[in-house]
């Protein structure tokens, strides 16, 4: 038979038994202490889960940045379309005010040349 020298840390009240224990001298009181440490496998798993969690957060950030990229791209495409439309409208507007357009307009067609001209100083 072997004995282990074990130091017990005891609590005064055994929660399981619901009994008040007497820790006076010469009392053969035994209480089983609970070990606060977790096992190595569990430690490893917890650390692994923490690392994976941080990676997930990083990936989420990256994805949300990427999603901004899609929004940006949509806006840029729309801007290009509007710029092209504006260029077209500018050209149409300029053509309508060109000399040829003015000469061929109904207003010009209804004008007549003066019979005579003179100038006033």
């Amino acid at each position: 038979m072997t004995y282990k020298n074990t130091v017990y840390q005891s609590s005064r009240i055994s929660a399981r038994a619901g009994l008040r224990q007497n820790f006076a001298m010469n009392q053969n009181t035994i209480a089983y202490a609970r070990d606060g440490k977790i096992g190595p496998v569990a430690t490893f798993v917890v650390i692994g889960l923490l690392v994976v969690g941080m990676l997930m957060i990083y990936l989420m950030q990256l994805s949300s940045t990427g999603s901004y990229g899609y929004k940006l791209n949509d806006i840029n495409v729309r801007q290009s379309e509007l710029v092209a439309e504006q260029q077209d409208l500018e050209v149409d507007n300029a053509r309508m005010q060109s000399l040829a357009a003015v000469k061929n307009s109904t207003v010009a067609a209804s004008m007549t040349a003066p019979a005579s001209t003179d100038s006033v100083n």
């Binding site: 990256l62 940045t65 990427g66 901004y68 990229g69 899609y70 940006l72 791209n73």
Partner: peptide
């Protein structure tokens, strides 16, 4: 110049 996805959309990453 930027990273682009499979549809050639530029992404600011």
């Amino acid at each position: 110049q930027s990273v682009r996805d499979a549809r050639d959309t530029p992404l600011p990453i």
